[in-house]
Write a protein that binds this DNA or RNA. Structure first.
Lengths: 154, 154
DNA sequence: CCGATACATTTAACATGTTAATCATTCCGG
DNA sequence: CCGGAATGATTAACATGTTAAATGTATCGG
C-alpha cells in the first residue's frame, strides 16, 4: 500500500498545521481560538448574516457554530436576534466590542501573513491556492458517489 | 483586510475537507475514525514503534494518541508493552486482528484514492504535494519566531 | 545512595468536529 | 383552518485538538 505519510490528506494536514502554528500564538494572546477568529472575521464582511449562511462562510458545521456563537455572545463580541419574517432564523452581527478586538488582532495577523507570503513567494502562493481550489472543484462532483454503494463486509 | 475566505488556512482547510469527505463513508463502514485509520496504517509500516515516534509518524499530539491507543487496544486492534530498557516508554504494534481490518478497508481506500488521482490528474497531484511540502519547509524555520515577542495589549 | 532534574506518557479541562436527535417554526395539501 | 412534512437552529453524545498539569521512570551530580 502507498506510504500513508505521503498521502494527500496528510500533506494537506501538515501544510495547514505549519501555517496555523504561525497564527496560534497571536490569537491566543487575545483569548481567541482559530474558529472564533474566523467567525469574527466573517462578520466584518457583512452588516449582518443568518446563522446558516455564516456557517457556510466560515466553513463550520452547525453545531460548532451554535456553540461558538453562544460563547461569543456571552463575551459581548457579537449580537444576535431573530429574523422578523421567520422566527426560526437567527441573524448575527458583530458588536462594537467585537470590532475593537478585530482591530487589535489584525495588525499582527497581517504581519504574519505577509511574512509567510514573503518566505514562500507571492506568486507561488497564488499558484498553490489556485491548485487547491481546482482540487476542491474536482472533488465536488465526486462527493456523494460513495453514499449508496454496497460494501461487502460488516 | 484581506478577504478571509481566500486566506491560505481556509484554502487548505477546504481542500482537505473535500478530500476527506471522499474517505469518511468508507471508514465509517468499518467503525474507524480518520485518526484511528492513520494509526493503524502507520503501524503496518513498522514491526513495532514507541508512542512518541508513532505520534510523529501519524502526526497526532500525545494526548490524542494516548486516548486512541487506549481504545484501539480495548478493541484488540493493537498490542502494547513497556520497553525493556526504559519502563517509561511504551512500544506499540498492530495485532493480527488489526491487520485483518486493514486488509478489509484498504481496497476501497485505494479505489477512492485512485479516483481522486484520476480526476485531478496524477501529475498535477504530484506537483501539488511538492508545493505543500515546500510550504511546510518554508515555515519550519519561521516557527517559534512568534513566541518571545512582546504584544502591546492585553 | 539521594535528591533534583529531565523525560515519556497519561490525565485533565476546555474547545471543536461529526453525526444523530430534538425543538420550534413554517409551509403545504386537503 | 388543521395536521403532517419540511426547515433552521440547537442540543446530545462521542471523538479529537490543544495546552497545562500530573504521574511514573531515568539520569546525573554530589
Amino acid at each position: 500500500m502507498r506510504d500513508f505519510s505521503r498521502s494527500l490528506p496528510m500533506s494537506l494536514l501538515r501544510a495547514r498545521e505549519a501555517v496555523m502554528r504561525q497564527f496560534r500564538p497571536s490569537l491566543r494572546h487575545h483569548a481567541l481560538t482559530e474558529q472564533q477568529w474566523r467567525i469574527l472575521r466573517a462578520l466584518t464582511s457583512v452588516e449582518s448574516i443568518e446563522v446558516t449562511d455564516l456557517a457556510r462562510l466560515a466553513f463550520l458545521l452547525g453545531p460548532s457554530l451554535s456553540r461558538i456563537l453562544r460563547d461569543l455572545e456571552a463575551r459581548g463580541l457579537i449580537e444576535r436576534r431573530a429574523a422578523e419574517a421567520d422566527l426560526r432564523r437567527a441573524v448575527v452581527s458583530i458588536s462594537p466590542r467585537g470590532l475593537k478586538l478585530i482591530e487589535a488582532v489584525a495588525p499582527t495577523s497581517e504581519a504574519i501573513y505577509a511574512a509567510i507570503t514573503k518566505r514562500y513567494g507571492a506568486r507561488k502562493l497564488a499558484e498553490l491556492q489556485a491548485m487547491l481550489g481546482a482540487l476542491e472543484e474536482s472533488l465536488a462532483s465526486l462527493s456523494g458517489a460513495e453514499e449508496g454503494r454496497g460494501e461487502a463486509d460488516e
